[in-house]
Measured scan of single mutants.
Amino acid sequence: SPISQSQFIPLGEILCLAISAMNSARKPVTQEALMEHLTTCFPGVPTPSQEILRHTLNTLVRERKIYPTPDGYFIVTP
């Protein structure tokens, strides 16, 4: 029987999409709110552990794709 394939999207890209959507909705993007958003909006995607989430967010900050503030994470705009 054929095996169904799913699209692979890197966690960093999913986080950027989620942060962008939450920023547009003016929702604060904390790590907890981000986990909740991922569970709700990406039900088929396994939720990352806190450690993996933190590591991926730090990587995105180093890559200058997002930036942290006391009010949460935001997408870097050119």
Rank of each mutant, 00 (worst) to 15 (best):
P28S: 07
L53S: 01
F8W: 11
V45L: 09
Y73C: 14
P43I: 07
I75G: 10
F8K: 05
M22A: 03
G72H: 02
S24K: 14
L53R: 00
D71Q: 09
L53T: 14
D71G: 13
P70L: 08
T47Y: 05
N23T: 05
Q50C: 08
H55N: 15
I75L: 11
D71N: 11
R64P: 00
D71V: 11
T47E: 04
I9C: 15
P68N: 13
Q5I: 09
F8A: 09
S24A: 12
I3E: 14
E32R: 08
L38T: 03
G12A: 02
D71M: 09
I75T: 11
E51N: 02
T77Q: 06
A33L: 08
H55K: 13
Q31W: 06
E51R: 03
L34M: 03
L38H: 02
K65Q: 15
Q5L: 07
S4F: 05
V61Q: 11
C16F: 08
T30P: 01
T40F: 06
P48V: 03
I66Q: 00
T56A: 09
V29R: 00
F42L: 07
H37A: 02
I52L: 09
A33Q: 13
I9V: 13
E36G: 11
R26E: 11
Q7H: 06
F42C: 15
R64M: 05
S4P: 13
T69R: 11
Q50F: 13
R54M: 12
P48H: 02
K65C: 03
F42Y: 03
Q50I: 14
C16L: 11
L38S: 01
N23R: 05
P48T: 02
F74V: 12
F42M: 14
I3N: 04
M22Q: 03
T40E: 09
V45R: 08
G44R: 15
R64V: 03
P78F: 02
S49M: 01
E51H: 14
G44P: 08
P2N: 15
C16V: 08
M35P: 02
Y67F: 11
I52Q: 14
P46W: 04
V61S: 12
N58R: 11
I3M: 09
Q31C: 15
P43W: 03
S4L: 11
V61W: 06
G72W: 01
C16H: 08
H37W: 03
I52R: 07
N58K: 08
A33K: 11
F8T: 07
N23I: 02
K27T: 14
R26W: 05
F74H: 03
G44A: 09
F74K: 13
P68I: 09
E63S: 11
A21Q: 12
L60T: 00
H37N: 07
K27N: 05
Q31S: 11
F74D: 10
L34W: 00
T77Y: 07
Q50K: 11
S20H: 03
T40L: 08
K65V: 12
N23M: 03
N58E: 12
T77S: 13
Y67H: 12
S4G: 04
S1Y: 06
Y73K: 07
L17S: 13
E32G: 09
L15E: 01
N58G: 12
T47G: 04
Q50W: 07
Y67W: 09
H55R: 09
F74T: 10
G72A: 02
L34S: 00
S6W: 03
S6L: 05
V45I: 14
S4E: 02
D71R: 07
E36T: 12
T59P: 00
A21S: 15
F8S: 13
T77A: 11
H37Q: 08
L11P: 02
Q5G: 06
L38D: 00
L15I: 08
C16I: 12
S49D: 04
T56S: 12
P2T: 09
K27V: 07
Y73N: 14
I14P: 10
V45T: 10
I3Y: 04
P43G: 06
M22I: 05
A25L: 11
L60V: 01
I75Q: 11
R62W: 07
C41W: 07
R64E: 15
A21K: 14
S6M: 06
I19L: 03
E36I: 08
K27A: 08
T77M: 04
H55L: 07
T47S: 07
K65S: 07
P48L: 03
S6P: 08
Q50E: 10
T47A: 07
L17W: 05
E51S: 10
I3K: 10
S1C: 04
L38P: 00
L38N: 00
T47N: 05
P78S: 10
D71E: 12
M35E: 06
L57F: 02
E63Y: 10
T47F: 02
V29H: 01
T69A: 11
P48W: 02
V76H: 06
L60S: 00
C16R: 08
E51V: 05
P10V: 15
I14W: 06
G72V: 01
P28Q: 15
I14Y: 06
A25P: 02
L17E: 14
I66D: 00
N58Y: 04
T56R: 04
T39G: 13
R54F: 07
A18N: 02
A18R: 05
P70R: 14
S24M: 05
G44L: 07
L53E: 00
A25V: 10
G72K: 02
P43L: 07
I52E: 10
Q5F: 06
L11F: 14
Q50N: 07
R62F: 10
L17K: 14
Y73A: 07
L17Q: 15
F8V: 08
E32D: 07
H37P: 00
M35R: 06
C41K: 06
F8C: 06
S49Y: 01
E36N: 14
V76Y: 07
P2S: 12
T77C: 14
E63W: 08
Q50M: 14
E51W: 05
I52Y: 15
Q5Y: 09
T30W: 09
C16E: 05
S24F: 04
H37T: 02
R64N: 09
V76K: 14
L57R: 00
F8G: 06
T47M: 10
P2L: 14
I14R: 08
C41P: 01
E13S: 10
S4Q: 11
L57T: 04
I19R: 00
A33Y: 04
M35L: 09
E13W: 02
G72Q: 10
P28M: 12
L11T: 02
Y67A: 14
S49W: 00
V29F: 03
A33R: 09
D71P: 03
S49K: 05
C16T: 11
S4H: 13
A25E: 09
S24V: 12
E63L: 08
I3G: 09
T59N: 07
